[in-house]
Design a binder for these strands. Sequence first.
DNA 1: GATTCTGTAG
DNA 2: CTACAGAATC
Lengths: 280, 280
Amino acid sequence: MPMLPPIRARANHLDCNQPMPKIATWNVNSIRTRLDHVCQWLDSTGVDYLCLQETKVTDAEFPRQPFLDRGYHVYCSGQKAYNGVAILSRQPLAGVEAGFAPQLPSHSELDTQKRLIRAQFAPDVILVNVYIPNGGEYDSEKYHYKLHWLKTLYVYLEQLTTQGEVILCGDFNIAPEDKDLFDASDRATKVGATDAERNLLAAIRDLGFHDAFRQFTEAPGHYSWWDYRSGAFRRNHGWRIDHLYVTPGVKARACNCHIDIAPRRLPKPSDHAPVILEIE
Amino acid sequence: MPMLPPIRARANHLDCNQPMPKIATWNVNSIRTRLDHVCQWLDSTGVDYLCLQETKVTDAEFPRQPFLDRGYHVYCSGQKAYNGVAILSRQPLAGVEAGFAPQLPSHSELDTQKRLIRAQFAPDVILVNVYIPNGGEYDSEKYHYKLHWLKTLYVYLEQLTTQGEVILCGDFNIAPEDKDLFDASDRATKVGATDAERNLLAAIRDLGFHDAFRQFTEAPGHYSWWDYRSGAFRRNHGWRIDHLYVTPGVKARACNCHIDIAPRRLPKPSDHAPVILEIE
DNA sequence: GATTCTGTAG
DNA sequence: CTACAGAATC
């Protein structure tokens, strides 16, 4: 694990009188279908940075105007029907790059699926938004694709963490510990909870990341995703797979991190709930 | 044209203190999609018998409960995705038969498409609900199927009208006269308005049927169907293709027949409006 | 234009 | 269970 320098300058948000900026991650399962939910949620929470996954829309078709109207800048990397990530920010962001290729040209084949976007969050803080592959069935092609994607993410972040602080957030499709899913039985073949996935996530974490949610909450039973099927939400049969990982300089400034389950209660919700990190 | 006997007994509805029973026909273009529209419309109009077409659902999947809750009996003959007819009735109905086969076994091949259901409406009145084929393009296979279906319906009704009064209603996909469609130009090849179709409809009518709507309204410009495309409804570019045909005994008791265009104004409407016949 | 299916994905 | 694509139907 490389030594991490202290934050070298005040973050953007501190330059503009926002005492407690909020950074959130939310797999919306189609930004077009969830447009009203997201707009109302932004209006009510005042989140300053929102990292979206599964936007399921090309950049040309991304519904920018509702967010522009609310004072957000929109940075997106999407495709038709599947995947797609975006960052909404009240501040204009520099250093926006989509995919692995700008940093790892040899891994550009992974960029046909739009799963990663990053931006300069502050002069020495980079924000990385990921939608890690679901993984399908255990030992399937999709499962191995997920493992390969995680290994590539490790290399990507290994480089990035040497440059300064990092906020890494998104839908990881991994429950880090048994207490992060409602039923950890048969976990050897339960995709999202297997050793291979957890070990790769642990390797990434060991680059210097801390699970912001676990800074504030140790208890089990807190989830960010519930299957649409068989009343999983009603029974709280969920998984905590949406995360904000932060390097020490950001960790030191973290004030709170929680999952907001209110949007999951709405009619026609995303199957994921947003997770909010507040930093001073 | 066979001589028709007078009505031999009071209709069911007169046995239960409903002074002005209403019989309606409505192509709902998917009963599942239009469930709320139909329920609200039944609640507001108090229609007693509703003949539905294009229910697009198997009998096992038909959403019965909302109608049972409202005091209707449900008789349906449907299939997956296409076609499908049903009768809703406040009274339980006897003599329910689906398709041509019970009466014309030699034409059972037409019953693979669920387009006909009938029931005993009163001791000497039979109610027949049809969804006549659309016909596709002029001179196409579908067009000739429509003509064949109409010829079979003629034979079916030729038998039925000897047994008593008949109410024949449904989506006929035929505008009987030029005034029944907004643009009768090029009608030689305009499916729904060609001579072959009109002649077959006229042959059926000549079995003793009267167009109930035309008992009360002679004017052109009254339509029951408008294409979803190009603002056809807004411009009243429609066709009158949903009909209630009644034999003389019923005609003598008809008090009103009108098209209710209100449901066509709702969000996500069927492309057809219901037609209501009131009888004393 | 609106709905349905099949197929894919999660 | 929800969403999207693409084809077919009307």
